[in-house]
């Protein structure tokens, strides 16, 4: 099976992109579990959309400083900063006003994204600027990715994974019972910052491949799918990582095979297939298993009568 995959036609560059997107998928799936369990899925959506103005501003700063071409680390730094600023805004609004969190998320997300789109149009109209690559961050594109960039992506993903491995116990406590954690003296505010830092890492790493509109799918879908398979958090993280990694890998392969398919959308669609399959067929909590269990119970009721 593995030999049948188009390894022969795969150059060094494609192999690197494949490794990078797989690592990204694993990290996104794993980190995403905590966002799903903490009911913060939509905060990560706001974070990713809010990276756009940061990317464009970082590009302008690079232009002003005379950086040759687009400097990826600078753009990603800009993305991380504006994403973090948006999350801080959401937290400030929910903390100091009576607005519910979903309303705050909606307001902040659209504000940052709108600003980003306007800035992008302005920059693209600048005669001096070669802003062609910036649009790729919106929907993602692996075709233009260089192997050095794929390696950067893999390193970011590994750092995020290491963070989860090191603070598994703390993240589990925070996600399950924040009040108890605070009463016991754990600095839950700092935990939350740490979790958001992990999500930011994954988001920023995924900007190029999956794009900022769809990265939320890679964070949330594998985690949501994994929840159908198990009632153990450790196993859920493994399954989510597996589904995320497979989605990243298969999606990148498909988009490399068919040149005009956008990688981000394909990766997300593969993840969605895993989600649908889990929803229906997972033995622990899937719909089919549930229906069968209920039918069997009803039958045993009839027998008892």
């Amino acid at each position: 099976m593995m030999e049948a995959l188009p390894t022969a036609g795969m150059g060094h560059n494609t192999a690197m992109v494949l490794a990078g997107t797989t690592a990204l998928g694993i990290a996104a799936g794993t980190v995403g579990c905590f966002m799903v369990l903490r009911r913060r899925a939509l905060v990560s959506d706001a974070l990713s959309h809010a990276t756009l103005p940061g990317i464009v501003i970082a590009f302008l700063v690079g232009l002003a400083l005379g950086v040759e071409g687009r400097s990826l680390p600078l753009l990603l730094l800009g993305a991380a900063l504006s994403g973090a600023l948006a999350v801080a805004c959401i937290q400030a609004i929910t903390r100091w006003t009576r607005l519910p969190e979903d309303a705050a998320i909606g307001a902040v997300l659209s504000c940052f994204f709108g600003l980003g789109v306007v800035l992008l149009s302005v920059v693209q109209a600048l005669p001096a600027a070669n802003a062609a690559g910036l649009k790729g961050f919106i929907f993602g594109q692996t075709a233009a990715m260089r192997s050095g960039e794929a390696a950067t992506l893999a390193v970011l993903a590994l750092v995020a994974l290491a963070g989860v491995a090191l603070f598994f116990k703390e993240l589990r406590l925070l996600a399950f019972d924040e009040g108890f954690a605070r009463a016991a003296g754990w600095p839950t505010g700092r935990f939350d910052l740490g979790l958001m830092a992990l999500v930011t890492l994954v988001t920023v790493a995924g900007l190029q491949t999956v794009g900022l509109v769809l990265i939320i799918a890679l964070l949330i879908t594998p985690a949501a799918a994994a929840r159908f398979w198990t009632d153990r958090l450790g196993l859920m993280l493994l399954v989510a990582g597996l589904i995320g990694g497979l989605s990243g890998g298969i999606g990148a392969l498909l988009s490399a095979r068919f040149q005009n398919l956008p990688a981000g959308a394909i990766i997300v669609l593969v993840a969605s297939c895993f989600f649908m399959a889990s929803l229906f067929f997972a033995p622990a909590r899937g719909l089919l298993a549930r229906t069968l269990r209920r039918a069997r119970l009803r039958a045993s009721l009839g027998a008892a009568l």
Partner: peptide
Amino acid sequence: FPVNALDVVTMGRYGMIGWGRR
């Protein structure tokens, strides 16, 4: 939440275990 009873009870020990330790 995907944890069992023992997982929840050991959360009471986390303060004694400390940051990042198993």
